[in-house]
Write a protein that binds this DNA or RNA. Sequence first.
DNA 1: GCGGGTCCATCAGAGATGCTTATATCAGGT
DNA 2: ACCTGATATAAGCATCTCTGATGGACCCGC
Lengths: 287, 287
Amino acid sequence: MDPHLLRTFVAVAEAGSFSAAAERLGYTQSAVSQQIAALETDLGLRLLRRRPVEPTEAGARLLEHAGPLLLRLRAARADVLRTAALPAHRLTLAAAPLALNPVLSARLARGRAEQPRLRVRLRTTGRDVVAAQVAAGEADLGLTDGITAPSDPLRLPDAGPMTRVGVSEEELVVALPPGHPLAGRTGLRLADLVDARWLATPLCPLERLRDLVGDGFRAGLDYQGEDVHTVRNLVAAGHGLTLLPASAGAGVPLAAPRLVHRVELLHPSLPPGPAARLAAALSPPPS
Amino acid sequence: MDPHLLRTFVAVAEAGSFSAAAERLGYTQSAVSQQIAALETDLGLRLLRRRPVEPTEAGARLLEHAGPLLLRLRAARADVLRTAALPAHRLTLAAAPLALNPVLSARLARGRAEQPRLRVRLRTTGRDVVAAQVAAGEADLGLTDGITAPSDPLRLPDAGPMTRVGVSEEELVVALPPGHPLAGRTGLRLADLVDARWLATPLCPLERLRDLVGDGFRAGLDYQGEDVHTVRNLVAAGHGLTLLPASAGAGVPLAAPRLVHRVELLHPSLPPGPAARLAAALSPPPS
DNA sequence: GCGGGTCCATCAGAGATGCTTATATCAGGT
DNA sequence: ACCTGATATAAGCATCTCTGATGGACCCGC
């Protein structure tokens, strides 16, 4: 279970081919073949069916573990190396599309004003990639978002010890196409919308809704991206309803159940320095 | 960052000595020295101060990562191997001391009655060891417990993908020494007890209470064990108050905030078989 | 201050690992 | 059957990683 072997196993499974994986990894096909063989004899069972190359049941199980494992390994390395790094004057902030809402944009502006010499690079990435990037040291700070009950933490993929602070919670609205019969309401209950057609999006997955309210929520279009503009266009075109934070556009406030759009700030344990000051600036002012 | 090296690094840090770690691992002292040197040159910084042997800051950081990492590695291996294992007629259930309350004991009895030929081995372990044992395959099913808001999941150390099902939630009581002025009440609010002296126990850590209610909760005795009988004796002797599930003994019901003693069933993804049937028996009957 | 004991670092060599190159083997299509 | 595209195996070589021996730093009692 050498991580090295794990890495090539993942590559082979993804590529669907020993030779392709070998090329991607800079090995010969023979080396890859031997590495997979080594893994298989170590575990005593087949991980891949050949021709075509696809994971066996055991292999599928291993694949589930391998990703997080390799991520944590990179995270550990990054975290250790960070202790030696000098406080930089340039830092990277990774944010999910809906995470940098007006409130946080304003706080970010204030934070930058406090440290004029600090160069900030902002990067928008997928919601669940943020944690991975912070863990792996590819970003110094991260902002992710999601839908939860008030003051509940987000469910995030685990990428090692990391500080998580809720920095913003905002009302949700139901995004409806213009002219929708319910568009004039002043508030909607989720339970009243179980029979509607819903977009499946990463922000607002249908299983989450079903968990909260019960069965229903017919699936409309399944949208895999995270682009808010696109989502709103899809809603307008009648592909289905979805939930959005109030600041992301018009809609009817969600009255029940009590859910919020929550943004969390993610970062490794920070030594005092520019990064820590910016993190403080992004956090809600102490009441 | 070979796990092999990580393992010896942890061993050295724990043993506080290269030679002692070497003996424990079955290596020579020389090998251990070389392994640590390899890790240090790989990362480009010192992980241990020598004479006496103690982790540097970077080393301490690495130590935090190493444990969970190695655990997940073992978990992955165990999980993969499990796909090949035949359904056994003997399985091990790991339970925290307070997890197997009357309700669950009864469900366990019913489950065993359903499968008379199934031999069940029950093991009581520390609350956070349960997850590790299940992940590492040392137990087939696990029951942990903790204090949360109703229907909130427990905060558990992450040990890889694992199914978690809430199987029981029970009212909490404040355990008081006999003759305590508040002992006659019919209900107590946590906020009214911020100034009392509290036991610090793994089930009811004071930081958790402070998170929920605010500062206060003076620390009495710090009890590291998990033995309920001992805890009750400590309370009776006036070392401090604590929260217990109602079924664990007399006390005054906790009226606010709304908290429960929650028990969760942990298990890897189970193929249909005796283990899955027992897991079903332990889960609450569908309403 | 000196000698012995303890502990970690270093060195040299034996054996195991893990790569590459070359070749064998296999499955499927024609 | 034969060719093609693919994985498996074999042999050779470089590297890695142990062991055992030795060296150097520190602590302690005398």
